[in-house]
Design a protein around this nucleic acid. Structure first.
Length: 421
RNA sequence: GUGGGCGUAGCUCAGCUGGUAGAGCAUCCGGUUGUGGUCCGGAAUGUCGCGGGUUCGAGCCCCGUCGCUCACCCCA
C-alpha cells in the first residue's frame, strides 16, 4: 500500500460514515432549537489569532499547532480549537454591534499535532457553540443544557457533568496568589515548576497520582470567589437543577486554555479510557478584547464528535439504522441499462432511494446485488417489461411478487414505504 | 517528546522446535429457459510492512527502519 492518510487522521468511511452524520446532527440540533446560527469558518487563521486568543502558555499553542508559512511569508495555522476563530469572525463582521448575545454554532475539523491515541486524533471533529455579549449566568446554563440535550438525543446515559468556577479576575488573582504560594512549598519537577510560573491554575489539571496526592490539601478556588462570582456560580447551579441536569462540582477543573474565567465545565464519559472528555467549555471574559474587539464576555463549548461516537459504541447504542433502499432495478443485459437508469432517475426525483445493477451483469449476479443492497423491492427490466410497460415487482424479504405498471410504480413505492426513504 | 503491544490475501486471523504460505468471511463466475437469500462447484488476490544479517534454507531467529495501536503528557 503506497499511500495512506496522514498519521492520526481519523476518517469516516461507509458504513460508519452514516453514524458520523447522525451523531453530528444530533449534537447540532439542540443548538438550532435554541436560536444559535451557523458560522462556516476559516479552517486556517493567522497564527496570531491563536497565540493571542488561546494563550502562549498553553500546550495547544506551544507545541501542538500545525503552523506553516504561505507564499507571501504569512504565518498561518490550522485551527486547533474553535472559539478564537469565532471571536475573530464576530469582530471582523461587526456582529457584536448588533443584537446581543450573538449565538453561533459551528462544526468541522480541528487540528493538533499530538501523538495520536484512542479518542485523540490530529484531525478531529468538533461541534461547538458560542454565546457572546451577555454576562447572564443563565446563559451558561443554556449552553450546558444544549450539550446535555445532544448527548441525551443519542441515547447516551453514562456521561457525567463536572462544573467549576474560576471566578472573575479579582477572585482569580487572589486565588492564583494563594495557590502559587502553596505550590512553591512542594517539590516539583522542572516542567511543573515552569507551569507554576506561566499559569499556576493549570497545575491543578495534573492527573499524575503523586501530583493529585500532593494537591489534595491545596487551597480551593471556591474559597476565593468574591460575592459577585459566588452569586453567579449559585445561579448556574440553581439553573442546572431547574432543568434537571445532574452535575458535580470539581474545584480543580481548570481546563487547558488560558481564556477561561468564571464557569468552566466538562462532560466526561467513564467508559472511554484515557481520553474521557467528550465535551467541555466555559466562560471567557477577556478573549474578545485580546483579539482587538470590544470587552464582551462570552460562553461556549466544544464537543468532540469522534469521542461521542466512541461513547455511543461503548454504551452499545445502535446508531446505524438501516437506510432502506426503496427499489433495485435489474436490467436484463446491457441494452436495458439505459432504460433502467431513466426509470431510476425518475423515481429518485420522487425522493425514492433507488439503485440498479450496472455493468451488464448476469441476472443471477444482479439479483444478488439487489439482495445485498438491502432494497425493499426489486424488479427485472427486459424485453417483456419494456414492451408491456409492466413489471413483476418483488418484495425481497418475503419473495412476494406482484405485477405493476411502470407508471404506477412511484406512487406504489411512496405509499408502501412512507416518508422514510 | 517518552514507553508498551502489534504488522501474513480486501477483512478477521492460523502458521508446530527455522524446510519454501493457509482457513473463514467478502468478491467474481457457474450449477443449461428471465428472478436473490441456503447449498454445491470453480476463479482471482500475497515482494509474509521495508532493509540488512545469521543459515544449505527465514513468515518464524538477530539488528535497523517505517507504520499501526495503547498509555504518559495534554485535550475534544
Amino acid at each position: 500500500m503506497k499511500y495512506q492518510a496522514p498519521k492520526g487522521v481519523k476518517e469516516y468511511l461507509p458504513p460508519s460514515s452514516a453514524l458520523f452524520e447522525r451523531v453530528r446532527e444530533a449534537l447540532i440540533s439542540p443548538a438550532r432549537m435554541a436560536n444559535y446560527q451557523l458560522m462556516e469558518l476559516a479552517i486556517f487563521e493567522e497564527t496570531e489569532v491563536f497565540t493571542r486568543g488561546v494563550g502562549e502558555s498553553t500546550d495547544v499553542v506551544s507545541k501542538e499547532m500545525y503552523t506553516f508559512t504561505d507564499r507571501a511569508e504569512r504565518s498561518l495555522t490550522l485551527r486547533p480549537e474553535g472559539t478564537a476563530g469565532v471571536m475573530r469572525a464576530v469582530i471582523e463582521s461587526g456582529l457584536d454591534r448588533g443584537a446581543l448575545p450573538v449565538k453561533i454554532w459551528y462544526a468541522g475539523p480541528f487540528f493538533r499535532a499530538e501523538r495520536p491515541q484512542a479518542g485523540r486524533y490530529r484531525q478531529f471533529y468538533q461541534v461547538g457553540i458560542e454565546a457572546i455579549g451577555s454576562e447572564d449566568p443563565l446563559l451558561d446554563v443554556e449552553v450546558i443544557s444544549i450539550a446535555a440535550k445532544g448527548f441525551a438525543a443519542l441515547g447516551l446515559t453514562g456521561f457525567e457533568l463536572v462544573i467549576n468556577s474560576l471566578g472573575d479576575s479579582e477572585s482569580r488573582n487572589a486565588y492564583r496568589q494563594a495557590l502559587t504560594e502553596y505550590l512553591l512549598t512542594l517539590s516539583l519537577d522542572e516542567a511543573t515548576r515552569q507551569r507554576v510560573q506561566l499559569n499556576p491554575l493549570r497545575v491543578l489539571d495534573d492527573k499524575r497520582p503523586e501530583m493529585i496526592k500532593a494537591l489534595a490539601s491545596a487551597p480551593s478556588i471556591l474559597d476565593f470567589l468574591n460575592d459577585t462570582s459566588r452569586a453567579e456560580f449559585d445561579v448556574v447551579q440553581q439553573g442546572l437543577a431547574d432543568l434537571g441536569i445532574k452535575y458535580t462540582i470539581n474545584p480543580r477543573l481548570v481546563r487547558g486554555l488560558d481564556y477561561y474565567t468564571k464557569t468552566t465545565f466538562e462532560f466526561v464519559h467513564p467508559l472511554l479510557g484515557a481520553q474521557s472528555g467528550i465535551g467541555g467549555g466555559g466562560r471567557y471574559d477577556g478573549l474578545m478584547e485580546s483579539l482587538g474587539g470590544q470587552p464582551l464576555s462570552g460562553i461556549g463549548f466544544g464537543i468532540g464528535v469522534d469521542r461521542v461516537i466512541l461513547a455511543c459504541e461503548a454504551e452499545g447504542i445502535e446508531l446505524l439504522q438501516e437506510r432502506e433502499l426503496a427499489c433495485f432495478i435489474v436490467p436484463l443485459g446491457a441494452q436495458f441499462e439505459r432504460q433502467a437508469l431513466k426509470i431510476a432517475s425518475e423515481l429518485r426525483d420522487q425522493k425514492l432511494r433507488v439503485d440498479l445493477a450496472f455493468g451488464g451483469r448476469a441476472l443471477k449476479g444482479a439479483m444478488k446485488a439487489a439482495d445485498k443492497s438491502g432494497a425493499r423491492y426489486a424488479f427485472v427490466l427486459g424485453e417483456r417489461e419494456s414492451q408491456s410497460q409492466e413489471v413483476e415487482l418483488k418484495e425481497l424479504a418475503s419473495g412476494a411478487v406482484q405485477s405493476i405498471r411502470l407508471s404506477d410504480l412511484p406512487q406504489f413505492l411512496i405509499r408502501s414505504l412512507g416518508a422514510n426513504s
